[in-house]
Design a protein around this nucleic acid. Structure first.
Lengths: 147, 147
DNA sequence: CGCAAATATTTCGCATGCGAACTATTATCT
DNA sequence: AGATAATAGTTCGCATGCGAAATATTTGCG
């Protein structure tokens, strides 16, 4: 049945997503980090003093989820969180010294983690990207039309 | 940088996965169900008296996660959970009358939910499947070699 | 200016999701 | 048979993940 086929696509997505997440989790755990903390480290290094909502946008997560992740990183001393001068509702997030040092320490781990994935031919990467965009578009269409 | 590219693939996967999940969540919520409960209903309808670990295998989740999901469905009266006769460690899961009825009620919702996705050309579906397999394989290779 | 609407973030309740530890039962080995 | 290992599920602690509600601040309208 058609329904079955779509379900299989969904499950295949979840599987790949989970495999990806576990790979990153494993790599990150070598530095006592989680997968998302490693991703956030990267974003903060490239965008110092970023706002929480902009960070959430970049990592494709909701504000509330991002808030929790950042909170744990602040508690761990990796991130400095300060009120903005101009807008006292907003927060700016920046890597602490400790966070900066940790980012540098993860260099080798990150490269090693990526190694296996780099074997995916460029051709397939482009093709994958093309289809993902299409799928996303279809899924979002449904969301719109429901609202 | 290459690292960047891989990260983008990862994020794109998470995005599609989340969009998928939200689509199903929205559809399921019309019947006071969650996305996974809808999936489990399907599996139980097709495989009555299935064991928990076999269900976990089918939905690609860990035993502990599956146990929690089933537990909530039992509490909601959708699933009957009984000890096996032959092996008193194992449990068999079967849809209750209520679960069966609910499954039938979701028919229209399920078809409607799938509709937009069916617009993805068969060609793309096959291509996607091919690449996903490849990616999964690469990711699993890394896991092996780490162990 | 003063109040309502909009905005930024946090908090809350709930549902995944995992691995590790635990319980109960069954299989295996001597 | 009796100790030991293996297996099936559940429970626990933790980290995502979301939307809704709450809080604080700023903006905009009359």
């Amino acid at each position: 049945m058609q329904e079955q086929r779509i379900l299989e696509i969904f499950q295949s997505y979840r599987e790949v997503h989970q495999a990806f997440f576990q790979l990153m989790t494993k790599a990150a755990s070598k530095h006592k980090l989680t997968a998302l903390q490693l991703i956030v480290l990267r974003v903060l290094r490239e965008h110092p003093e970023i706002r929480l909502s902009d960070l959430a946008e970049k990592v494709k997560l909701g504000n509330s989820t991002t808030s929790g992740i950042v909170d744990r990183m602040v508690k761990a001393g990796l991130v400095d969180r300060e009120r903005t001068e101009t807008d006292r509702r907003a927060m700016t997030l920046t890597l602490s010294e400790k966070g900066m040092a940790l980012w540098r320490e993860t260099e080798a781990t990150r490269l090693h983690m990526m190694r296996s994935l780099l074997e995916l031919p460029e051709e397939d990467q482009r093709e994958l990207d093309r289809i993902q965009q299409k799928v996303l578009h279809l899924l979002r269409n449904y969301r719109e039309e429901e609202a």
